[in-house]
Design a protein around this nucleic acid. Structure first.
Lengths: 352, 352
DNA sequence: TTTTTTTGCACAATCGATGGTGCAATCAAT
DNA sequence: ATTGATTGCACCATCGATTGTGCAAAAAAA
């Protein structure tokens, strides 16, 4: 059945076998054959032959010729948390639906690696690049621009191309309000009992902090400078910050605004070193949603960023290259404690 | 500074500009120039020119010529849980360290999509394929074999190529023992109070179930057939199973062996519909580790599969194509409740 | 000085698919 | 029967990089 195993059949093989020219074979197999006035019967013949020999087009060659590869890139800071992994999952679904091939890579929040990654993807002639959570979106923009590659920022905005991001200010407000709302009027929260941990000096953090402060001042009347503790996006630096606070104050604040689920993992590390009682009256608000995080032994309010909405909008906006760069805000959703939301996985078939 | 923006420089451009032949330019830029006896000064000249014009090699062309692309593929069932996302994260680190480009795609546990995905990746001339958690690894093997592509199974084994998987039997045993161990001799667990939920009829589930039953019989003296409830790998089918059980029995079992963190999400969904008290005396053992899952309000014992170990072994074994297919077992680790382990993210720099 | 060896590079074919162009053969119109 | 239009396909250059081969010029050996 199989002729020469090992090596894939090419249009030249099919050409030899059928006595039809390679260009005609190509036209039949890539769908442009009607335009080229190829006979139906000829097309039929070639299609059968292709099927029989399990022909698949060599995309490297195709990409070289067409100078587009069918690859669509997503650059992520990291994979390993539910926000970014659902980003990858959602992105992939969209790309595949368009008949293209998703290629997801991470760049570790390192501006230099971000540029290198972009260069690297470009060398594969990807057709579009979605830049998610980049530390230096404008740097990546330069690289894309120089290569004439369509691109768009997600999660963290740039100034030189369109961006689709969460409405972090509103999200910060909503989350802060919700945290404060957990405390009864009989036992109200004082301004120095609500702290924000995590994040760094990026657009998202700044906006969330702005929302946090505005609401805090409005509802609690004050907002001591010390109540903001940016720790970067790493579990460990967050853990250290919690430990330091605990060391100094003898306890955790009653209420915490945690700037990302990654930082929340820092709290977990802290928790593992301290008894349950330490968290008896704790209320946590966390930016980012994690289903397991929502069910911890203390109330955890989470902000679910609308990943589906962001990706959808990004696919629209990436086509629009003429208008000046704008930032498109997508509203995140407040998730009350003990809530298990459905996610991108729910779209899949259940096979038992 | 920039000459002709928009289009990337090629070796032909550099050739024109320098008056040196394309082949020499190519040799210099791909490192084979010593072998070709190119003068050091010529090489220098070309390298400078390349730098100045931001030359990067067109990998499509290179791949076409060399018939290898520098792409290494990882096929995942899904992204969106901590097991698979850490798999992606770890895989990516390994591939990049080898100077290649990772390309991660998911295939939704659908045998047909698995094959199509493999075909698709092959059409991009990927150099190797890591097949993770495939429903039909042997089907994918066929496709790879026909294309002469090196490949290896991870997480779920095939019979036709090497496989690196968790020691699911031992893992199942360890987890079951640990669950039973949580119950004091004063209030021992009876055989009909320990149930296994989740998974399906795949190698991993079968082995875990085998371990579960062996330990259960040994320690509890019996193992009613009904205590195994495979639900497939979806949160929702698991939720339904928990609801059904609760409906019938009026309560949950005191002890649960949950076959994957995905199924654990089904328990979360169940939890959100029931008050805290329902889970007051629950003990859960979950195959897969999720840091947040480890801190739920009841004791959760988790099995952390050694992703780093599996990937490392897989990279070794994928080279070994002569020996008959073997299954390599990697021992997973038992994670006690309230434990926050470090993960692949901890390797990254902390930038604040 | 002549012959041999080495150095340094250019030439051209090739990887597989694409698409502009050209040209017979068939068919229709005059 | 002649001209003109249409059909059906083959030819060939091209995308950018790689690599086997060939051949002058320079250096070394005779």
């Amino acid at each position: 059945m199989k002729k020469d195993n090992r090596k894939k059949a090419t249009i030249y093989d099919l050409s030899m076998l059928s006595g039809i020219s390679p260009s005609t074979v190509s036209a039949v197999l890539n769908g442009t054959w009607r335009k080229r006035r190829i006979k139906e019967s000829t097309a039929e013949l070639i299609r059968d032959l292709a099927e029989k020999h399990q022909y698949t087009t060599n995309r490297q060659a195709q990409g070289l010729r067409r100078s587009r590869s069918g690859l669509v890139g997503l650059m992520l800071p990291v994979y390993d948390n539910r926000y970014f992994s659902s980003m990858a999952q959602t992105f992939e679904a969209h790309v595949r639906q368009r008949g293209q091939c998703p290629i997801v890579v991470s760049s570790s929040r390192d501006p230099h690696e971000e540029r290198e990654t972009a260069e690297n993807l470009i060398s594969y002639s990807i057709d579009e690049l979605f830049i998610c959570g980049a530390t230096d979106p404008d740097g990546v923009h330069e690289v894309c621009e120089a290569a004439g590659l369509k691109h768009i920022n997600i999660d963290l905005p740039g100034t030189k191309s369109h961006s689709v991001i969460s409405d972090n200010y509103e999200g910060g407000r909503m989350l802060t309000e919700a945290i404060i709302g957990r405390f009864s009027t009989g036992d109200p929260l004082s301004p120095d009992e609500l702290f924000l941990f995590g994040g760094r000096n990026d657009h998202a953090s700044r906006e969330r902090i702005r929302g946090f402060r505005d609401v805090k001042r409005a509802l609690l009347g004050a907002d001591p400078e010390a109540s903001i503790q940016p720790t970067g996006y790493s579990p460990n630096t967050a853990r250290i910050a919690f430990e330091a606070f605990f060391e100094k104050a003898g306890r955790l604040p009653r209420a915490l605004f945690i700037n990302s689920s990654i930082n929340f993992e820092g709290l977990l590390r802290f928790m593992s070193a301290h008894p349950h009682e330490t968290f008896a009256d704790l209320v946590v608000g966390c930016y980012d949603y994690d289903p397991f995080g929502s069910f911890l032994p203390f109330p955890v309010i989470m902000m679910r960023q609308d990943v589906e909405g962001m990706i959808t909008k990004a696919f629209e906006l990436i086509e629009e290259t003429r208008t000046p760069p704008k930032i498109h805000l997508i509203r995140p959703d407040l998730v009350p404690p003990r809530t298990a939301l459905t996610g991108p996985l729910d779209g899949l078939k259940d096979i038992v």
